[in-house]
Design a protein around this nucleic acid. Sequence first.
DNA 1: TCGAACTGTGTCACTTAACGTTACAGTAGA
DNA 2: TCTACTGTAACGTTAAGTGACACAGTTCGA
Lengths: 139, 139
Amino acid sequence: MNSEFTIAVHSLVFLANLPDHRASSESIAYNICTNPARVRKIMSTLRKNNLVRTKEGLGGGYTLGCSPAETSLGLIYRVISAGTLKPHWCSGDPDADCIVKSNIQTVMDDIFTESEQSVIRHLEKITIEDVLKKVRTAH
Amino acid sequence: MNSEFTIAVHSLVFLANLPDHRASSESIAYNICTNPARVRKIMSTLRKNNLVRTKEGLGGGYTLGCSPAETSLGLIYRVISAGTLKPHWCSGDPDADCIVKSNIQTVMDDIFTESEQSVIRHLEKITIEDVLKKVRTAH
DNA sequence: TCGAACTGTGTCACTTAACGTTACAGTAGA
DNA sequence: TCTACTGTAACGTTAAGTGACACAGTTCGA
């Protein structure tokens, strides 16, 4: 899985934890330990899915566009990371004669897709608020 | 997820599909489309878990060490790829003052571990025989 | 007992994906 | 119009994934 999911969740939790739910890409990036451009790219995707609101210009930045209690990590995964469970490298060769060699790709593809579905179903049970609570009570 | 899981499954399905369930690393690698050394490295792990038997020397090679109908992909995942669902990159910093920044790592860690468990539970429902059947009936 | 055909394993090189950096156009408020 | 933001693209750098090679150890048959 790629780490954009982590960044997306961290950003939303960070915003949810702030009194005014508002921050610039620079302060979010500082909290996450990455660079503002990377944050902006991911926030831009979140905005297109109404999970954050953005405001350009002076005094602008990012604000929460969703209710932490109603936003699941499953939704965030689908928006940010769908398809990333499957490895890039594939075994076999569709044009080969051997049925294993030629058919394994589509079979494994299905298996990875189903596996991803089971991850998403699990992540749908966890909300941003749940994560925030865990962060607040972590020892 | 890393592609060693794919190679392990492909190898076992390939062996299961052969009449004598026996092959050299070279012929397995050719079927998978990778190099023999990589196959040997992964098969070595499978051998340590009794999923294949290996024989060195002249006339040696790999044979199935398990029953395809009783061997689940979940077991293979645990043996080969446990822990690879989580991305390498982590956000936050355990030494920071902000509770989000300092605690997000352990919280996300738990989430990835649980997500991996749900993948494993799903993969436990699929056997090598199931994969072989799908390969044989794939259009 | 020697040679051929294997596995086991380590090392290094190469390729590709992940991540960081910089730059700059566009926007909005002071 | 200046300053502080986002949006996005391009490029550089680092780390992971994969391939290639080497060689010691093993087994069998001639």
